[in-house]
């Protein structure tokens, strides 16, 4: 596919090449421990988070500095979300949810920097996040409620005939959760970046380049929105699943 377009001339599309994992040093194989561009951008996300949350809050000022108020804003936002959705007893899982939110948020936005790499567009990454939440929440549900956790699938206020059918649907939807949870995030980010690359490819054609550049700007604006929304959606769904584990009764 790629070679065909090569022979045609200027118009070359490799919208997915930006997701290739490369070793940072040398051209060797990618082992599980090799530092790669994934490592680099995750490390940059980590440093950015540390800059905002550790350096920013260094002063512990009652009247916050700019950086500190950004940290406080995010803290307050996520804390309120966890408290509102899961209730008072969910607050102790706040650091985990904060970790997920920050990682996704910072990875998403750092990926918008040209030439950067987007770890959250990789299925493997989001699947670990999604299945991690799924497994943790399921274990937590059984630990907290014992067999009563299965009441999540049994609608006791539905008509008796419908209950088994609803239970089957509920079980299926429960197991689909991690899949949709992870593919939603990766799909959104990957699609956005691929579309940006496609527009960038069209920008090489003089005839359509103004349109293509306008398209890049528009999609980029959309991506800014999508990055925030996807981080928010992932986090609030995590909270909802956590609530199901803590309070399985409908």
């Amino acid at each position: 596919m790629a070679t065909e377009e090569h022979s045609e001339g200027g118009l070359v599309f490799h919208p997915l090449d930006q997701f290739i994992v490369k070793p940072l040093f040398g051209d060797g194989p990618v082992h599980w421990y090799t530092p790669t561009n994934v490592t680099l951008w995750m490390a940059i996300a980590l440093l950015a988070i540390a800059a905002v949350f550790v350096l920013g809050s260094r002063g512990r000022a009652v009247v916050p500095t700019r950086l500190q108020s950004i940290g406080e804003l995010i803290y307050g936002f996520i804390y309120k979300m966890v408290e509102d959705v899961t209730g008072k007893d969910g607050v102790k899982y706040f650091p985990y949810i904060m970790t997920l939110f920050l990682f996704i948020l910072f990875s998403n936005y750092l990926a918008l920097i040209p030439m950067s790499y987007s770890p959250t567009s990789m299925i493997a990454v989001t699947a670990v996040l999604g299945f991690g939440v799924f497994i943790a929440v399921t274990i937590l549900g059984f630990v907290k409620n014992g067999p009563a956790f299965l009441g999540l699938f049994w609608m006791s206020d539905a008509p008796a005939i419908l209950r088994p059918i609803i239970a089957i649907i509920e079980v299926i939807s429960y197991f689909v959760r991690p899949v949709s949870h992870s593919i939603r995030l990766a799909g959104n980010i990957m699609a956005g970046h691929a579309v940006l690359k496609v527009f960038a490819g069209f920008a090489a054609l003089t005839l359509v380049s103004p349109l293509a550049i306008f398209g890049i700007v528009a999609i980029y604006g959309l991506e800014i929105l999508v990055c925030g929304i996807q981080a928010y959606v992932f986090t609030i769904l995590t909270c909802v699943y956590l609530k199901d584990a803590l309070h399985p009764a409908h």
């Binding site: 997915l16 090449d17 997701f19 290739i20 994992v21 990618v30 082992h31 599980w32 421990y33 090799t34 530092p35 790669t36 994934v38 490592t39 995750m42 490390a43 996300a45 980590l46 970790t99 997920l100 990682f103 770890p119 567009s121 990789m122 299925i123 493997a124 990454v125 670990v128 996040l129 990766a186 990957m190």
Partner: peptide, 19 residues
């Protein structure tokens, strides 16, 4: 590249470290 199984262990490893 998302579906390349060769690269997945690497991403997962670094993701876990980062998290």
């Amino acid at each position: 590249p998302q579906l390349c199984a060769d690269w997945m262990p690497n991403q997962i490893f670094w993701l876990v470290i980062t998290l």
